[in-house]
């Protein structure tokens, strides 16, 4: 896990079908950029849920008003993206802080 404040976090849920659907894109991004996102499962892990709630306002905005998964949070830029229709390009821009 990266140092707090520098993390690229993927919040996902075990029973979320869209998280499952998006996983190959996440793995492609990791392979392409040579990085590893912090994969934080939030349905069963209360600690991870707390981390998500720390960034709740930004993530909720990105998710259409409520906290949802799949969601991505860049601690360096404070930017979140959310939903399963996220392209590899969009994910890359988010990771690069563009």
């Amino acid at each position: 896990m990266s140092e707090k404040g520098q993390r690229l976090i993927w919040f996902w849920g075990k029973e979320c079908p869209h998280c499952k659907q998006l996983r190959p894109t996440v793995e492609k991004l990791e392979a392409e950029m040579g990085i590893k996102l912090d994969h934080l499962e939030v349905w069963h892990n209360q600690e991870n849920q707390k981390i998500m709630q720390e960034y709740g306002d930004v993530i909720s905005d990105a998710c259409g008003g409520e906290l949802g998964v799949p969601a991505f949070y860049n601690e360096r830029t404070g930017k979140a993206i959310c939903g399963y229709k996220i392209s590899l390009e969009k994910m890359r821009s988010w990771a690069e802080g563009k």
Binding site: G13, C16, V42, M52, G56, E66, G68, V69
Partner: peptide
């Protein structure tokens, strides 16, 4: 299962 409850039951009814 794709939304995260806040712990506030009144608010979370919407989920």
């Amino acid at each position: 299962p794709c939304r995260i409850p806040s712990g506030n039951q009144l608010k979370d009814q919407a989920l």
